[in-house]
Amino acid sequence: MTPPPSSHLDSNQCAILALWYEVNASLSAYHKLLSAFGGAQQAWEAGFEAWQALGIHAAHLARHKNKEQTSASIDRIEQALTAGQYQLIFADQSEFPAQLLQIYDPPPLLFCRGNINRLQQAQIAIVGSRKPTAHAQKTTFDIAQYLAQTGYVVTSGLAMGVDKQAHLGALAQTDSDYQGRTVGVMGTGIEVFYPNHHDKLFSQIIEQGGCIISELLPHTQPHKHTFPRRNRLVAGLSLATIVTEATIKSGS
């Protein structure tokens, strides 16, 4: 059995997406399946018992058994791609940021909105407190603006506080050659804005030529485990990371 045909996706891409859906974007389960079967197509076509023998989680097994649900999920993504709601790039495509292939657990795909060319450019991450002091907010904004003016892309996690000021600083350009030099990495699915009141920031990044990405399935809601995953992508994309202000035990 093969995944449903797609005008956007070839059979191997459909298989990758089907696997990603059935393991609910679990990196460990996904890479275990690829290692065991040698490829996405073979892993997806493997039977329930073969997955069970690998110790795959019961919830993943249940999704793997329900092929109709998998096909429906791929259909929804295909419809969104056709409508231009977002883009989808895979790890073996030239558009995929090569630096992410060097991290310990690279994502097999990225959902994107905006200018994906930003992912190929030299990036510096700026992260820190969600409740920064006024001094830290100004410092963050100024550093981000300076980095964008010197040709770097400022990458951050779209959170409140330091993250927001990093994105805004990078966007605060009057020179068209340096506008939109920012990448936002989501801790949710590409269709879920979080924090909710940051929808204007999301729109501003996209409209000014920046890019927003997520490795998670489109409707994934915020959860405590999704933000460390986001953080590894922020760091993995970047040549260096600047922490402008944070507590000793912060996520930054």
Rank of each mutant, 00 (worst) to 15 (best):
residue 8 H to Y: 15
residue 79 Q to V: 14
residue 83 A to H: 13
residue 84 G to D: 13
residue 182 T to L: 05
residue 6 S to N: 06
residue 77 I to D: 02
residue 130 R to D: 10
residue 248 I to L: 15
residue 155 T to Y: 03
residue 70 T to E: 11
residue 194 Y to P: 05
residue 138 K to C: 02
residue 199 D to F: 15
residue 6 S to Q: 06
residue 132 P to G: 09
residue 23 V to T: 13
residue 52 Q to I: 03
residue 176 S to E: 15
residue 99 Q to D: 09
residue 83 A to D: 15
residue 179 Q to K: 13
residue 214 S to C: 01
residue 11 S to M: 13
residue 176 S to Y: 12
residue 38 G to W: 02
residue 35 S to F: 08
residue 29 A to V: 09
residue 136 A to D: 01
residue 90 F to R: 04
residue 161 G to Y: 09
residue 245 E to G: 01
residue 80 A to C: 12
residue 194 Y to N: 06
residue 1 M to W: 05
residue 99 Q to T: 12
residue 198 H to K: 10
residue 70 T to P: 00
residue 98 A to C: 09
residue 227 F to E: 01
residue 126 I to M: 10
residue 126 I to P: 00
residue 43 A to K: 06
residue 135 H to S: 15
residue 247 T to V: 12
residue 29 A to Q: 11
residue 45 E to A: 11
residue 101 L to Y: 06
residue 178 Y to A: 12
residue 24 N to A: 14
residue 38 G to V: 05
residue 124 I to C: 01
residue 112 C to M: 07
residue 120 Q to Y: 07
residue 58 A to M: 09
residue 219 H to I: 06
residue 216 L to D: 00
residue 133 T to Y: 10
residue 214 S to W: 00
residue 230 R to T: 00
residue 222 P to A: 08
residue 176 S to M: 14
residue 60 H to A: 13
residue 164 K to L: 11
residue 241 T to Y: 04
residue 239 L to P: 01
residue 82 T to F: 12
residue 27 L to D: 12
residue 91 A to D: 10
residue 154 V to H: 02
residue 118 R to P: 00
residue 239 L to H: 13
residue 242 I to V: 08
residue 155 T to C: 07
residue 14 C to S: 14
residue 214 S to V: 01
residue 140 T to F: 03
residue 226 T to Y: 05
residue 42 Q to S: 11
residue 234 V to C: 05
residue 235 A to S: 14
residue 155 T to P: 04
residue 24 N to S: 14
residue 198 H to Q: 07
residue 74 I to N: 02
residue 174 T to L: 15
residue 52 Q to N: 08
residue 157 G to E: 00
residue 194 Y to M: 07
residue 164 K to V: 13
residue 162 V to W: 06
residue 122 A to F: 07
residue 17 L to G: 04
residue 26 S to M: 10
residue 83 A to E: 14
residue 159 A to V: 03
residue 115 N to H: 12
residue 191 E to D: 11
residue 90 F to Y: 09
